[in-house]
Every structure is written in C-alpha cells, then in structure tokens.
C-alpha cells in the first residue's frame, strides 16, 4: 500500500537553511545541499525548499542550490517561495523541481493555480496555505504568515482543489514552532473537504506527534523543519517507530 510520507522542509535564505519560531527570530542552521544529502540518507520521502523571504523582499530562488541537489538526490523535490507567475514555475522546474508550491502568488492571482495546472499538470501544483485562527475562524495569511488576508481557509482549500492544485500543504501558524503536535482540528476540517493529498505542517516536536497525525487519518504526509535540522528527531528512527506502530512507511 501507499506509504505515508515524511518530508523535511528547508527554508532557504541567501543560499542557507534557516528556520524561525513562529516565523520570527530566524537562526542559521546549515547548508541546504549538505542537509539535503543528510535527509536523503536518513530516508526522507521528499524534500521541500522554500525561499521564505522571496515574497517579502522579492528575491529570486537560489536555483544553483536546487540544481546541485537535483543532480545528486533522486527523490521528489518541491520548491516554493516567490512563485508568482508561470515563468517562476518554468525557472524552478528546469532546475530539477518536480512540484512547485504557490502561496502568496495564488492569493495575489488565484488564476495562477489553474494556468499552471493546465501547463504542467495537476501533480505539479502544490497549494501551500499559512492558516491562523481569527475570531474562531480559519484565515489565510500571506507574505510569510505576516498579513491576514481575511480569506476563509476552508473555502480557499476547496477552491484550490477545483482550480487544479494536486496537493495541499496546511501550515498552522497557531502550532508552528510550538512543538506540541500538529493542528489536528485544522487538518481535519481541511481533509474532510478535499480529495487531493494533504501535507500537515507546523507543530511537530516529537515522534509521537507524527503517530498521532497519521492515526487520526487527517494527512497523507507530515512536514517539519527545525526538529529535523536540530536532530531532535532522526527521520530514520521516526519512520521505523511509525512502521512498528502499523503506519505504512518506506523504510
């Protein structure tokens, strides 16, 4: 059967991997190429690269890093950050990306999802959503989680699927960096409304959090950054632990 996926996310700025807590207080961690090699060896099922400052400072992605990674690591690579046009899709796909993640770009221009899906296929388009509770409702935040767009997140997810997104990344700003487990409530609300795969992000602190996520059946993959970067969780051990607990895993 299809395995659940464990996906480390590498937030890249100036060619280096960074990770903020609640998107603030960014700390330098490591070289993206070294980290990608390390994760590949540990059994990561995919890698995600986000240029976290791209939408804010309008920076392009570091395609040299991507090319180097793609030339020696042969698992699916997703690239996001600063994807606003079809040219942006083209640029990263030519450097070895398999999937392209849109976030603020889709908020500015919702037609981008459909246009990209038509040109590159649904499987290529990932809709990434930064979501936070505001007055008891789930709101989409833009620009690296800094701006409340007021958009209803549940409707946004449904619209994204209908427009042709092949996968959703649900990043809970409420649980991000807190390391107290994924936002199961938020994930459940999204998962129950769509048929495309859902990747859970934000809140992983220990291996039990991943078990809880998959047992709840609210996501197809678990994504995390700092717990992997700082080696608080070893991916190989995590996957063996999950497999021992009857979660289908590629080990």
């Amino acid at each position: 059967m299809l395995a659940k996926r464990i996906i480390p996310c590498l937030d890249v700025r100036n060619g280096r991997v960074v990770k903020g807590v609640n998107f603030e207080g960014i700390k330098d961690v490591s070289s993206p190429v070294d980290l990608a090699r390390f994760y590949n060896k540990s059994g990561a099922d995919e890698l995600v690269f986000y240029d976290i400052t791209a939408s804010y400072e309008n920076r392009g992605l570091f395609t040299d890093v991507l090319k180097t990674v793609a030339s020696e690591i042969f698992i699916p690579l997703t690239v996001g950050g600063g994807i606003n046009t079809l040219d942006d899709f083209d640029r990263v796909l030519k450097c070895g990306a398999d999937k392209v993640s849109v976030n603020s770009g889709a908020i500015k221009n919702p037609a981008l999802i459909g246009e990209a899906a038509k040109k590159y296929g649904d499987q290529c388009v990932v809709l990434s959503m930064d979501i936070k509770r505001v007055d008891g409702k789930f709101h989409i935040f833009s620009t690296g989680g800094r701006v409340d767009t007021g958009i209803d997140a549940l409707q946004w997810a449904v619209n994204g699927e209908q427009s042709g997104a092949g996968e959703l990344v649900v990043n809970s700003i409420d649980t991000d960096g807190v390391k107290n487990g994924f936002d199961l409530e938020m994930l459940s609300e999204i998962q129950s409304r769509v048929k495309i795969p859902v990747i859970a992000s934000g809140g992983a602190g220990k291996r039990e959090d991943f078990l809880e996520l998959f047992k709840a059946g609210v996501a197809d993959a678990g994504l995390a950054a700092s717990v992997f970067h700082f080696k608080e969780i070893n991916i190989k051990e995590l996957k063996e632990y999950l497999k021992a607990n009857n979660i289908e895993m590629r080990v």
């Binding site: 395995a3 996926r5 092949g166 048929k195 495309i196």
Partner: peptide
Amino acid sequence: NLKIPHMGWNS
C-alpha cells in the same frame, strides 16, 4: 476513498 492521482511511495 483512495486519492487520485496515485501519488507517493508504494511497494
């Protein structure tokens, strides 16, 4: 309830 496309790692 399986999702389509069949996407991911399978044995």
